[in-house]
Write a protein that binds this DNA or RNA. Structure first.
Lengths: 197, 197, 197, 197
DNA sequence: TATGAATGAGGATTCATTCAT
DNA sequence: GATGAATGAATCCTCATTCAT
């Protein structure tokens, strides 16, 4: 193993380990010792690469959001039609719960912190704004192209994201509540009916 | 100060104090010492009325859900028309965020625990199932009375609750994201359009 | 239940309960709350009849020693022959382990305190001196009557008591170590052979 | 101060400190804080080397018994004659009270725990069995060589150990009770007379 | 870079004791 | 006489962080 240029390897190692710890044991039971053990490193080295525990936590959530952002970019942006983009985005939201279930386990642990930790709050706000902004772009594009009616778009981004997130949370907490794929179709129907009326 | 019959008073005192502590500082920073200080009692007495910290936490979430359940009962049940009930329920969900903002601050802190604490998970699942079940009742009633079309109701309860919860969370995290009252109308429109199509 | 003249009843109740608690859970785990529960009274009343926990403990050991003293008096003193007295005393010591096994469980818990608690030390010393003194009396009587040889009696009281106590402790700790009745005979043989040689 | 290879040093430090604390203040008043202070370390480090307080206590008694075992091995085993071995063992038992008075202060504190703490009970039982087993070996050897008569050996190991322990305890509790050296001779006489009759 | 020993403050919990009723 | 609510100090243990190696 190289002894120099470990920076990124170690940071990723710690971030991944922390994510697993939070999802498995909850933020409440997260300790630096656990993180170190899960990452297979010493506690000391963690403080070489991160300022403190809080610093790790910020990097973890940023990394999660960054990954989510990337997924949208990779799958949605290549598409041309606003309608397709919107539907693909919706599918994406649904896929997160199914394929990357850690994601919800993770942000649920951070959402609780938003009211007491300003820094977390800012990051989460930015993430939500980002999500709404994507949707807004598709909608505006669609309105321009007369695919969507202008009247409906105002609050729609929030509706789309809120519904996706709500379903994701609900399913994460109780996977027996409904069939995720089938619900994904209903999700799209709901939005489609509203946006095309 | 009376020395007898304090049981309920003290328990409520501690539950209320714990709720405030969680909302203000987050579950991660919750300590029994804080709870005692917030409640204006000694730490010792807390263990006279509760088995341990976990026990308090369970009572806190149960109390919050019970209160929410009561609000639905009080406002929705008196109504006669399924459509009115559904819309009233939706209004209720929205009102929670506005009038009882602690509620979201609280459950966001518990949602993070669902993946690691089975007991919390069960309670939250039960709560969500309850909520969906209410909506389902209105819908079935509406289908019987031909107010709603049968085809749409299958996944609708989850949609209604998920959307409401998603909006509540989003607004709690970022109250500047949208106007809650206006969004409430859109929320109703979305559901109405879907259910009546 | 009478409300006056409860003094002795309550004190005995508490002393008996404390004894059971110590034997069952060890002095290390003894709490006033446990005592109260075992005695079926409130914690408050305990402080009405005893100065504090230490005070209870002193009364418990005194009561145990008093009882042991009484047993000797009742069974040994009526006898006439020094040799019979000595053997009866030895039988008594053995019987304690068998019939009143709490006794060893109790004093073992107090013996540990002798090095750090002067008051306990004094009580235990007095008890041992008492025991040796009984034996000494039989021996002196026996020497006077020419039953025993003078040379052997000097250290014998301690030997008799030490051997009895050692066997009692050993058997209490490990009842499978030997058959108590058979060992009682050997115990008597050992002393008899020494004293009559 | 070195930072590596401290494991054994620290463990011994803590075990020795705990022993002193127990002898001085009794097990009832033993706290991890005291141990740490007596050992001259922080409380935190104690939990780095021991699982918990119970774990320390187990190591303390094991160390004490191990030391006692070693003393027998070193002084008794080199001897050839069964009779010499037996007498040397007896002298050893007596010497413990005189030269290593902490030993009795220590085990007296553990004996009280045997009835409530299974783990301690097992350790103490094993220790006693060991002691009896040594004596038994000398006796069997002696019977083979016709030094001892076969009839007397059955219960003798327990008698030897019990008497030694009883005397040790008695003297530890009340050193004025008798002269230890002189009593040691009587102790040997008692056993000798019994075994050689 | 990397380790893990070391610290001491802080966490949950228990406990002896008091006191209003 | 009797209760059990109330207190706060003390207990066991964990944890974030530092630092010698």
């Amino acid at each position: 193993m190289p002894k120099v240029g470990m920076e990124e390897i170690r940071r990723d190692q710690v971030i991944a380990a922390t994510t697993r710890c939070i999802v498995k044991n909850g933020m409440v039971n997260l300790s630096v010792k656990n993180i170190a053990a899960e990452a297979g490193v010493s506690t000391g080295i963690i403080y070489h690469y991160f300022k403190n525990k809080e610093d790790i936590l910020m990097h973890v959530i940023k990394a999660a959001f960054q990954q989510s952002h990337q997924a949208v970019m990779d799958t949605v942006e290549p598409l041309n039609e606003p309608h397709d983009k919107l539907m693909k985005h919706i599918e994406n939201i649904n896929d997160v719960a199914k394929n990357n279930s850690d994601f919800y386990g993770l942000i649920l642990n951070y959402l609780g912190q938003t009211s007491s930790n300003e820094q977390v709050n800012v990051i989460v706000q930015k993430f939500f704004r980002n999500l709404r902004s994507y949707v807004n772009n598709y909608l505006e594009e669609g309105v321009n192209r007369k695919t969507f009616t202008a009247g409906s778009v105002k609050n729609l981004p929030a509706i789309v994201i809120a519904l996706g997130m709500g379903l994701g949370i609900m399913w994460t907490v109780d996977p027996e509540a409904f069939d995720l794929d089938e619900m994904g179709e209903t999700y799209k129907d709901v939005i489609r009916k509203f946006v095309e009326s």
